[in-house]
Structures are given as structure tokens and as C-alpha cells.
Nucleic acid binder design. Structure first.
Length: 395
RNA sequence: GCGGCCGUAGCUUAAUGGUAAAGCACUCGGUUGUGGUCCGAGAGCAUGCGGGUUCGAGUCCCGUCGGUCGCC
């Protein structure tokens, strides 16, 4: 029922097809995120027309109040949502960080230059032990425990095609010693996740490589996780401190990982990223990406364009009658002026979010299509150079 | 007409008689396994007007204009 076939490789980059019970995914692929079972501002059908063949849903958001039980009674995510597209769920490990320690430290997966401070120690409402994690729900403040067994149970009940092992996502601030200790825990949890998953035939599981910003720990993570019988691999966590360092470090770590992961299995770079990150990462052997950037940026008034991102709420666009991106062929760029999008974003009209989400998702999905063509035509290097030069023009 | 209360930044409000602040709005930046959130920085020609008391008035006094509430 599950299969990953690589059709062509150019350097480290790969073009392939991932088969699931609900359909095929052409890789490299971008996976839009529908956290609570909805892409904010677009229907699954709309997004499918734009070129998406798979969606990511968050276990964590269905976990805190046991809504995965409701979904199970409805027949699983596909029946509950009324769609037949391939789906994946993450394990909830990231939210323990992003809604727990990350929120305490006012940082995300990638640290902004302004908030480098303190130690990488966890504080506040999250307790991490060998058994699992205990923390307060960001939704209602109640105590919630997640263990590998519980995450996998929830993911089996949700019933997405592709699921992830439960891991610990560390802060960009984590020390070497903490990261090393955490990595051992993630490995233990990987084994327990597989144990809780055994005999499952309708789903396939990805293991997660952690190790933070430390190359030797990343290498160790890749070796250990690939020794286990996972269908594919997720690469998670953070890669460095400052914004620029984080990007460069991520690229060099991906180079390292592509040498240490078995080539025949799919690789999903979790939570990345910006268009340039995706291009650079495909170049270094990644097959799948999920990221909130197209939709979250849309809600914040930011549009992805071939010349970099622009924030349409800026005063400069108030009377700008040009399209968002002259070289984009999406319906929004063909039909609407920047001035109108500026107006909608300023007034926080829902329609503004819809239009920007449409454009941003088109932009990412179209980029993936171009990447696949470039691999097919042996000119990924040219695409990478041209795309990134142009993308950085205005930024 | 009489009486009370109120006039501070574009808006809503602070400020024992002692350097006139804050939030929103505005300008710019940030957000990478989703909180339409949040954070950071910036720009603001503000005490209705005219007098008086005082070393010093947004603040106290007089007048005036505007608003608001109450009463014939």
C-alpha cells in the first residue's frame, strides 16, 4: 500500500513518487498545513486545484481535549473531513516545545536575533521525563500528558496515511549536554513509537532525526533512526541560533544527513520553510516539506513573490495598481491590484486572507512543480541560482 | 434662562501645583512540524481661547467659547 520510488536523481536532489492508500504524491512536494482540519481561508479542493496532493494535520490540536476520539468515531480523518486526499499527522512533539518552552522563551523554531538570551533550559509549565511530557494545555490550562504510546494511539485513531514518531524538539538555545541527553530520549521514544505502531497496515511511520545545531549529534541521530524500520524520516528541530546562522547551519547539516540516511527512503524536512530554504534543501536531498508560511504569512499580510516577500499592508502599496507579482500566473495576480489587497489586509477583511493564502500557496506549489521539472531536465542548479538571486533582490 | 460636570496627540483616557504619559490608530521590522497571535523599534508641532494668582498652572481663580446632563 505504501511505496516510495525515486525516478531520477541529480546530484543529491531526487525526484520521485510516494504512494499511499489515498493517492500518489510527486516529490519533492510541499505539504500545506491544516492544523485543526482546515486550511484557514481555503478549501482542500481549492488547494488541490493549486497543485497540492497531500495535507498535514496536527495531532496536538486533536489531542488536548481528546477530539481524536470524536474523529475515530466519525470513521477517521478522511471520513470526518469528507476528503480523499493523502494526509499526514505530526506527533505533537513540536507543540510541546512551541507552545511550552518556546513560548516561555519567546522564541520559535528559528531564533530571532533579538531574543538570544538565557540558557537553553526549559522552564515554566513543561516537564520532560523519560516516560513522556507533562504540561499545561494552552487551550484551557488543564494538565496534559503525552507519551510516545499516547501520541501513536491518537495518530492511529486519527488515521492519516503518514504519521510521525513522538520526539522531543529542543530549543535553539539548548546546550550541547542538554541536546545530547534529549537525543537519547528521542531515540528511546522512537523505539517505543514503533512498538506502539506494530502490525499497523493502513498507515506508514516516519522516524524523526534530532540533534539540534550540533553536527555530531545530528549524525548520531541519523545513524540511529535509520537503523530502525521506519518507512521514512523526518528531520526536525532547530539548526542554529541567529537567523542567518540557522539557515547556513541547516544547509550544512542537511548535506551531512543526506550522506547518513538510506537513499531509498523519503525524507521530510519538518516545518521548513521559506521558498529559498525549500530550494536549497531539495538541492541537498530533501523530498517533503510542510510549513505554515504560505498561510500564516497571508494572515499577516505578507505575500511571497519572485522578488522576495512583501508586506502588502505597507503604506507604499496604498495606491499601487500593479499585481502582487508580475511574473505570477495565479488568479489573484491576474485579477487584483496591490492597492485592493492592501485595503483588504488593512481592514482585516477575511477576503484579504483568502486572496493572499491563495496566492502564497500557488507560489509554493508552483515552485515545487518547477523544481520537479528542473530535476527532470537536469537544470536544478540553474533554477537554484536564478531563483535565489531574484528572490533576494528586494530583501 | 438657571445650575452641575467635562474640554489633554487622529481616537479613548492618565498626570499631590514641579520634565505632559499610555493604549489604539499611524510608520518600519520580525514570525519556518499554525494562536488572524504576539513581539520589537519609530514618528508624533496635544493641555479649547483670553486674563489672573504663583518661583512654577493641564491642575487654583475670573471671563469666554464648545460639549453634556439636570431644572423651569
Amino acid at each position: 500500500m505504501f511505496n516510495f520510488e525515486i525516478k531520477k536523481t541529480v546530484g543529491k536532489a531526487r525526484k520521485g513518487v510516494l504512494k499511499t492508500p489515498h493517492g500518489e504524491i510527486k516529490t519533492p512536494a510541499f505539504v500545506p498545513v491544516a492544523t485543526r482540519g482546515a486550511l484557514k481561508g481555503l478549501s482542500f479542493e481549492d488547494c488541490s486545484v493549486l497543485g497540492s496532493s497531500i495535507f498535514m494535520i496536527n495531532t496536538f490540536h486533536f489531542y488536548c481535549r481528546k477530539e481524536y476520539e470524536t474523529v475515530e468515531r466519525a470513521g477517521g480523518l478522511h471520513d470526518f473531513l469528507g476528503i480523499e486526499y493523502p494526509l499526514m499527522t505530526d506527533s505533537g512533539g513540536f507543540q510541546v516545545f512551541s507552545l511550552g518552552a518556546g513560548r516561555d522563551q519567546k522564541t520559535g523554531k528559528i531564533l530571532s536575533d533579538a531574543v538570544i538570551k538565557n540558557e537553553g533550559k526549559r522552564k515554566g509549565n513543561v516537564q520532560i521525563k523519560e516516560e513522556g511530557v507533562l504540561f499545561r494545555s494552552p487551550f484551557d490550562g488543564s494538565k496534559v500528558e503525552i507519551t510516545p504510546e499516547k501520541s501513536i494511539e491518537a495518530q492511529r485513531k486519527l488515521g492519516a496515511d503518514l504519521i510521525f514518531a513522538f520526539d522531543e524538539c529542543t530549543s535553539p538555545l539548548a546546550s550541547y549536554n542538554y541536546q545530547k541527553e534529549s537525543l537519547q530520549r528521542t531515540h528511546l521514544w522512537a523505539e517505543r513509537s514503533l512498538e506502539a505502531f506494530k502490525d499497523e497496515k493502513k498507515q506508514a511511520m516516519f522516524g524523526i532525526v534530532q540533534g539540534g545545531k550540533f553536527p555530531d549529534l545530528r549524525e548520531e541521530g541519523a545513524r540511529f533512526i535509520s537503523s530502525l524500520p521506519f518507512f521514512g524520516f523526518g528531520i526536525g528541530g532547530s539548526f542554529g541560533e541567529s537567523y542567518g546562522d540557522s539557515k547556513k547551519n541547516m544547509y550544512s547539516i542537511l548535506e551531512l544527513l543526506s550522506k547518513n540516511l538510506p537513499p531509498e527512503k523519503p525524507r521530510h524536512l519538518l516545518g521548513i520553510g521559506e521558498p529559498e530554504d525549500v530550494v536549497e534543501s531539495v538541492f541537498r536531498g530533501m523530498d517533503l516539506f510542510d510549513c505554515v508560511i504560505p498561510t500564516r504569512f497571508a494572515r499577516h499580510g505578507t505575500a511571497l513573490t519572485s522578488k522576495g516577500r512583501i508586506n502588502i499592508t505597507g503604506a507604499a502599496y496604498k495606491e499601487d495598481s500593479s499585481p502582487l507579482d508580475k511574473s505570477c500566473s495565479c488568479q489573484v495576480c491576474l485579477g487584483y491590484k496591490r492597492s485592493y489587497l492592501h485595503h483588504l489586509a488593512r481592514k482585516k477583511e477575511i477576503y484579504g486572507i483568502i486572496l493572499l493564502s491563495h496566492h502564497n500557496l500557488f507560489f509554493m506549489l508552483n515552485l515545487m512543480e518547477e523544481i520537479r521539472e528542473a530535476i527532470e531536465n537536469d537544470n536544478l542548479k540553474d533554477l537554484k541560482r536564478d531563483f535565489i538571486n531574484k528572490y533576494r533582490e528586494n530583501n
